[in-house]
Structures are given as C-alpha cells and as structure tokens.
Design a binder for these strands. Structure first.
Lengths: 212, 212
DNA sequence: ATCTGTGAACCGGTTCACAGCC
DNA sequence: GGCTGTGAACCGGTTCACAGAT
C-alpha cells in the first residue's frame, strides 16, 4: 500500500463516527458531499481519502452507510478487539481507566499499573491497580500491543523501553517529554500544555484559524 | 504578520520546554542544531520557525538561552497569565482540574463547573465546583478568555454558544463531536478515540512512522 | 442527471544551500 | 571556522475538473 498521511487516518476516524450516527438514524446511503459537510471538509477530500483504500461507493448513488462503516472499521483495524494497558494511575491515568468511551470502540483496558505500593491493590471500576513488576508477564500473557503512558516525565523512557521489549507495539504518551522508540513501534504524544499554548498564541496574535 | 502554521507553533512550544531545561542546567547558549536534536527536527526547521518572528540568534554563536526563552514566551503569549475555566467535572474535567502542570506555564484554573447539583459545592483541590448558572457572570468578572469543555457531546455546542457569548475566545474541547464556533473564536479538539485509532491503523497496516 | 474515482494543478510546509555576520 | 537567516527548490497533501458508472 502506498503511504497514507496521518491527516487521512484522522479524518477516517471522524467519518466513522458520523457514519455510525447515520446508521443509528437508519440512513442507508450517504454522498461524499454530505459526509464532508458533517466532517468539516470537502467532498473531493472525502473521496480521495476513501479511494486510497479501494472503491466503496456507487457512481450516481453515493456510499452505502453500513458497508462503509464496515470498510473503515477494517481499514483502521477496529474489526479486532484491542487490549490495552495504562501505566501510571495518577490523575490522567485514572481518568482514562474510568472513561467508558474506549470499550465501545473495540478497546479494552486490561490493566492499570502504578509504582506506588500504596496505590497497588486499589480498585478502579472493575480493575485492580497492579504492580509494575507484573508488567512484562501481563503484556506477554494477554498479548497486549498498545500501552498508554501516563507517568512522570523522568520515568517515561525507562518504562517505554521495558514495555516495548515485552511486546508493546504502539504507545500513547501523555508526559511532556521527547521519547525514543525502537524500530517498528508507533508513538503518539498528547500534550495538554502545547494545546493550550496553541490557543494562547492564537489569542495573542489574533490568528483566526489554525491550519490543520 | 504573515500566516503561521500550526506545526510551527507546536514546535515553538516544544523548543520552549527544552530551553527551560537548558536554562535550569545553566546553559547560556544553544545552536539550532542542538535544539533540533532535542526536538527531533532539523536545524533548518528551527531557524525557519524562529525567523518567522524575528532574528534572535547571533551568527557564529547560536541563540542565547534565556533571551530565546523570553522571546518564545512572548510569541506564545505566555508572558501574561491566563485564567481558564473547566466546564464539566466528570472524569477528564476532574483530572485536568487536579493537574498541577498548568500553573507552571502561566495557566490558572479559576473555575470548575458542573450541571449536576450533587456535584456543585464539592471541593477539588483548592476549588469548589460551581453551578453552570454562574458561568457568564464569572467569565465577565474574571475576564476569562479560555475554556476547557469536558462535558457530554450532546451538551457541548450549547455550552460553547453560551461561553463565547460571555467573552470566551479560545476553547479546548474533549467531546468527540464537531462544533461550530463564531468568528474570532479559536477551537481545538482533543480526541482520545482518534488518537488510539491512529495507533491501531499503524498496527494493522504495519506503517512505521506517522507523518506529523 | 447524479455522484464517484482519479490524474493534474495547486499550494503551503519542509529542506537545501549559500550569503552574511561573529 | 562556526552558525544564523533566508530565498529557492522540493515534496506531499489538498483542491480541481472531468471521465466514467448508475
């Protein structure tokens, strides 16, 4: 497959959400124009995004909603279920562990870990916070490929190294530190401070839109 | 000023963090190459980013760390303090309210709001959760320009409309719904599901890197 | 007539390369 | 010699426009 831009994947994720809403309203068919309007983009963009992966529409008609849902799910890998672990049961880790939105999308939090012995053993919804000692064993046993890192910055790289050695292949990092990942591991970073600073930049410089 | 790309602003935010670390280590001078290495980009990119805003370096020498910190702070608007409010004291809102990282960067959480009467009055660190009835009055009184929206999707647009009418000019949204903002208001969205789906896409399609 | 799929044109962000200053 | 600042070249994502299918 040719290279796919991150922006395309991000939009596919968006389209999927809208399509699911259409499906819930029993809408059977949708045009690229309508999908574009919902997603705040253009009809050409929608068609281009989809055409990178195949021909899902019918000329003169549009796209069949539930077929397209199935197709995008498969493209994004959401036809499988993804066990994931959360490392660090601080503010953010806890919030994510308690957040229900994941399960509906095929993600299952199968473990929450913390280095603080006082925290280990506490319950978080249906899960018990576990010791970092169990990390490698659990990753192998449950075949976990995705880890969320919500630990203090100075502890992040060492934990990343440990979990990738154990088999983790994708990481969502919340610590505001740069990380090195081994070949074959995908890393994404969510940085609240940066998001806010993009806002203050816009406020300070009276920039209307921010290009995405 | 000519148009500035979001990617540039995001990198400035990164550079600032590294520069602060250098400053803490009493490093007085830094080259574009060193800054690039820290931020995972190229020297040319660093120079280009900075040159959009002025000439901050000395040829043959590099950039003076503390001067550059001051300059980037000013560019990002971080030389002022920004009061912000959090609307929705659910999982994410609570985590953000308790998160200490903001204050160090010039952000001050001055209000947390929830629609649930049982939640109103509860304390969150140094703050008391307030009723949505107080929203407009507080925004005006405290001259708040930034709001974090962490409420259920179906309530988000209505609250956005209310707070922008009251004077909010920048919004960080955590609900996975598309929003319309009035002219002159900057909106950013953080969407955890999409972040995870970019990861599953990479895992499913064995894509090594994701272009940013 | 309508709407998709896609090569071509366009546009803007990144990289290159070099002139200019320390 | 070392390093910045910046126009020019490059590259890749977006938009255009039209052929092709229903």
């Amino acid at each position: 497959m040719k290279h796919i831009a991150e922006s395309t994947v991000r939009r596919l994720s968006l389209y999927l959400r809208f399509l699911e809403e259409c499906d819930a309203r029993a809408q059977t068919t949708i045009s690229s124009g309508e999908l574009a309007r919902l997603g705040g983009t253009t009809a050409a963009q929608v068609r281009k995004d989809l055409s990178s992966f195949g021909s899902f529409g019918k000329r003169g008609l549009g796209y069949h909603v539930s077929d397209l849902i199935r197709a995008i799910r498969e493209i994004l890998g959401l036809d499988k279920s993804w066990p994931l672990i959360i490392i660090g049961a601080g503010k953010i880790g806890t919030a994510l562990a308690l957040y229900r939105g994941f399960s509906s999308r095929g993600f299952a939090v199968v473990g929450v870990y913390d280095r603080d012995p006082a925290r280990v053993g506490q319950r978080l919804d249906g899960l018990t916070i576990r010791s970092l000692d169990e990390l490698e064993r659990d990753i192998v046993r449950l075949k976990v490929k995705i880890a969320v890192l919500s630990v203090p910055g100075d502890a992040t790289q060492a934990l990343l190294d440990r979990v990738t050695k154990a088999g983790i292949r994708a990481i969502l990092n919340f610590a505001p530190v740069p990380l090195r990942v081994p070949q074959g591991v995908t890393l994404r970073a969510v940085n609240m401070a940066t998001e806010l600073e993009i806002l203050t930049f816009a406020l300070t410089n009276r920039v209307e839109s921010v290009t995405r």
